[in-house]
Simulated scan of single mutants.
Amino acid sequence: MRYGLPAPLCKFFASLALILSLSAPAAADAAGDGMTIVALGDSLTAGYMLGPDEGFTNQLEKALKAAGHENVTVVNAGVSGDTSSGGLARLDWAVGPEADAVIVELGANDALRAIDPDLTRKNLTEIVTRLKARGLPVLLAGMLAPPNLGRDYGENFNSIYPDLAESEGLILYPFFLDGVAGERALNLADGIHPTAEGVGVIVERILPKVELLIAEARERKTAGN
């Protein structure tokens, strides 16, 4: 007497075993393909006066996961009140070895303090230069100078971000507060810092640029393997 499964079932289980053997490594690779984005910035990144889940990095990470980027972690390296000089001074420890990509959001406090745009440009250029030397792709989040500082100051300051992005081949989000600046319902009582809802608008608008950053970081990882 012969013992065993009927031929059709044998073929079915053989096919299933083959499928599982091919898909298991792919699933393992996907699970281990983590990525860390560090957001280097000021109070706009830090989440000034917001709850633990309401700030930029928290909302961005949540939006990325909802968009299918489940293994991406966004690290909050924002310090309230920081200028471009402060960001440069803490760059080496703020952007640790775990970073795969960086969002640079600095310059708002430079403009509010009417710091010489040439200094801001110099600092941001040095930050980008150091990050690129480490092989880290950069998304540069732009800022605009308050109009009360005058036309000349505004032109010199506002041109920093597109100029730097073009010369260094960076991904540029022209104005970090796009859709939020000047909207009373989306800002705290100070009229400067966004509410949780305001941060939501920022995240929604910057998300496509962050996805470009992720794609660039993955390409670099693949090329390095």
Rank of each mutant, 00 (worst) to 15 (best):
R90L: 08
L91H: 04
W93M: 02
A94S: 14
P97K: 14
P97G: 13
E98W: 13
D100F: 12
A101N: 13
A101G: 09
A101V: 12
V102G: 11
V102P: 08
V102L: 09
I103S: 07
V104D: 04
E105K: 01
E105I: 04
G107I: 06
A108S: 13
N109I: 00
N109F: 00
D110P: 00
A111R: 01
A111G: 00
A111K: 05
A111M: 02
A111S: 10
R113L: 12
A114I: 04
I115F: 01
D116I: 10
D116G: 00
P117C: 05
P117A: 02
L119V: 14
T120K: 02
T120C: 05
R121N: 12
N123Q: 07
T125G: 15
V128T: 09
V128N: 00
V128E: 00
T129M: 06
R130D: 00
L131V: 04
G135I: 10
P137V: 03
V138P: 01
V138N: 03
L139D: 08
L139E: 08
A141E: 12
M143T: 05
M143F: 07
L144E: 14
A145C: 08
A145D: 03
P146E: 00
P147Q: 08
N148I: 10
N148K: 07
N148L: 09
N148M: 12
G150C: 04
G150F: 00
R151E: 15
Y153S: 09
Y153D: 07
G154H: 02
G154M: 10
E155D: 12
E155L: 13
N156V: 00
F157W: 08
N158S: 03
N158L: 04
S159E: 13
D163L: 06
D163S: 13
A165V: 06
A165W: 03
E166N: 04
E166S: 10
E168P: 04
I171M: 01
L172S: 05
P174E: 08
L177T: 10
G182L: 00
G182M: 02
E183P: 02
E183Q: 15
A185V: 12
L186F: 11
N187G: 07
L188V: 03
L188F: 14
I192D: 03
I192N: 02
H193Q: 05
H193G: 10
H193Y: 09
T195Y: 13
A196Q: 01
E197P: 01
G198E: 06
V199P: 00
V199G: 03
G200E: 06
G200Q: 05
V201H: 05
I202K: 09
I202T: 13
V203G: 04
V203F: 05
V203T: 02
E204S: 14
E204G: 03
E204N: 12
E204A: 15
R205I: 01
R205V: 01
P208G: 05
P208R: 05
K209W: 07
K209L: 09
V210L: 03
E211T: 09
E211N: 06
L212I: 15
L212E: 15
L213H: 07
I214D: 09
I214N: 07
A215M: 14
E216Y: 07
E216S: 11
A217R: 13
E219Y: 11
R220A: 15
R220I: 15
R220G: 14
K221W: 12
T222Y: 14
T222K: 15
